[in-house]
Design a protein around this nucleic acid. Sequence first.
DNA 1: ACCCAGGGTCATA
DNA 2: TATGACCATGGG
Length: 204
Amino acid sequence: MAPPDPASLYKALRAQHGPQRWWPADSRFEVLVGAVLTQNTNWRNVEIALSGLREVGALHQPEPILHLHPRRLASLLRPSGYFNVKARRLRALCQMVVSAGGLDALDRLATDRLRDALLAVNGVGPETADDILLYAFDRPVFVVDAYTRRLLERLGHEHGASSYDTVRDSFESALPRRVPLYQEFHALIVVHAKTLCRPRPRCG
DNA sequence: ACCCAGGGTCATA
DNA sequence: TATGACCATGGG
């Protein structure tokens, strides 16, 4: 069975689930935080940690996070798991943002340069970087995460097990470079996956 | 009591 | 380059 091309897959998902309006965050900086906290972690746990950070006013700018004592930050991140690792990674990301001159300064970089700046941060890999590029900086990149790979494999897509960049490039070269399209596409993949999980306690 | 979740790094062969 | 260990919580 031939897998659908990216455009057809998008149309099918869009027809089934409608518009999504994603990523779930109240500010641009919150996208960066969420992208780190959700690494290999259920979003439900991430939300608990985000609430804690919101209460201390650390979800709109990087500086408040840098002002927190590292152990204090780790304890705020506890509900999202890997809290020691994530405290270090989040701090490193915030330091990069500040030393680059803030989010507005970063936003003036070309997409490839911005991706390099993100990937240079210890703890930011390709998925985290692309989440941030797509949803915090409105760059047209196709995000490849666990949901994406599962869906592609289930559809018999040949690139299901390929490298991150291979999968991303194959989709980006087949799609028009429109930011809302990429934002909706990834959102639909996530929503679709969660829809499949609902009827069954077991899903995976 | 087990299994998993919107990854990434590091050490080792 | 390619595995494997490790990080850790909350929910099904």
